[in-house]
Write a protein that binds this DNA or RNA. Structure first.
Lengths: 239, 239
DNA sequence: ATCTGAAGTCTGGTATATCAGATCCCACAC
DNA sequence: GTGTGGGATCTGATATACCAGACTTCAGAT
């Protein structure tokens, strides 16, 4: 099962651990701050103090600075040189993150439809079928996992590393929010229909259709998330 | 000319300097490294050494680390924890950056078409007219400047701060390459036609058309750049 | 000759110190 | 009362020090 290019033949080799999995302080700070910002625990425009953060995390300012630099590049905070960094996230920003994800994810769907092979196409269909089963049995946890697999599979099929990486940064809701979403049967059903249609379009190689449907799916489900996170305040601009 | 909300009436007030313009060492390092990477001065997979870079720039490793963190988030380098960072940029990556820009820029064009007002629309048309003049007089420098104004104006009209910021990071060619491009009369003419069509679609509020044309424009001109930077090796996947 | 592993070296990760720009506060002049 | 300016203070930017993980090398065992 595990490829073993060389070594002892008498026992199963262990998979090489991906260096990316190693945790460093700056990554922990980065993820924690990111989650806090996306959860709305800071007001837009609020100043953040490096020394204060360092104290709260119980670390020095060095990893804090690096984490803030990452957040800055992600667009979640703004750095005013020699003046400090301020939080930059509100509902409008979240809407734009959804639009960005819609634009990128639909581009990837387009390419996936053109580049996917027979076996990968069958796998995608299989995932969609599992989603149908999980939907009818109201298995929220499976749906969350399958949803991840579904999009991940499309990313791989598109053979786009950069675009896939870019999309990861536009994700502003996490598993806990997803669980809330999937509690609504109507939402589950709608998502299933969209996933099924996307899978079909990709597998049959209809790039333009796949693109349109992926975009609508991301925007529509994004609206649902927005309403939950920010309350039903305003409708997102529709494509 | 310069808005003056309050202060002495006897002399013209000076415009407030944007804090963003202040140069810091890490920004200088970031920009320099970024330009070097995009210019192909590193091979993909090549390791970069923090101490060595610090020595070359004549600074300490702190701003180097921060700059590398930004490049990492931009996707131009990859950090293997405790092992160092490696360059991640080749023709394939560049192609994807163009696709990302196409996806985002077309989304912005779509929104701009829906949100632009009368005066801003007139300004956009005016810019397009200036482009026509500069094209017939073969004024490359003006074209480069106008091209920047054109896209910048569309970004503002779309009222999308996040998306505009995201697009900036997908720009992998600079003014010097643009100058080479604009030396070709056929290319100038083609670009003009596209810009004119985009402007018209946006001003008339045809969001879908604006989106399509912007996308084609970005992809097509991106191919031209690719051929110059990487040599005529391979065609980019077309939308 | 090949393999193993321990010591040495390299290098990134983190902590701390120092410098200088930005902000705040208050005394003083008008 | 208003406004100006000098100094104290805060805080980000940079430099330096130190630690620990990763890689290299080479002696010794087989």
């Amino acid at each position: 099962m595990i490829p073993e290019p060389s070594g002892s033949p008498r026992s199963e080799a262990f998979a090489k651990i991906d260096p990316k999995f190693q945790m460093t302080v700056r990554d922990h700070v980065h993820r924690t701050l990111r989650a806090a910002i996306l959860a709305g625990r800071f007001a837009t425009g609020e100043k953040v103090n490096e020394r204060s953060l360092a104290e709260q995390f119980g670390v020095s300012t060095t990893p804090i600075k690096e984490a803030l630099r990452q957040l800055e590049t992600e667009g979640l905070v703004e750095a005013l040189p020699r003046r400090g960094v301020i939080i930059r996230f509100d509902m409008g920003w979240a809407e734009e993150m959804i639009l960005a994800r819609a634009a990128l994810e639909s581009m990837i769907a387009h390419l996936a439809a053109k580049r996917i092979g027979k076996p990968a196409g069958a796998e995608l269909t299989a995932i969609a079928d599992l989603m149908a089963k999980a939907t009818s049995s109201a298995d929220a946890d499976s749906l969350i996992s399958l949803n991840e697999q579904f999009h991940e599979h499309i990313h791989r099929s598109s053979r786009c590393g950069y675009l896939a990486k870019l999309i990861e940064r536009q994700q502003f809701y996490d598993a806990s929010i997803r669980r809330v979403i999937h509690m609504d049967p109507a939402e589950r059903q709608k998502a299933l229909e969209e996933h099924t249609a996307i899978a079909k379009a990709i597998v049959t190689g209809d790039a333009d259709l796949a693109e349109r449907q992926m975009r609508n799916h991301v925007v529509r489900s994004g609206e649902t998330y927005l309403n939950i996170v920010f309350g039903n305040k305003k409708d997102i601009e529709r494509g």
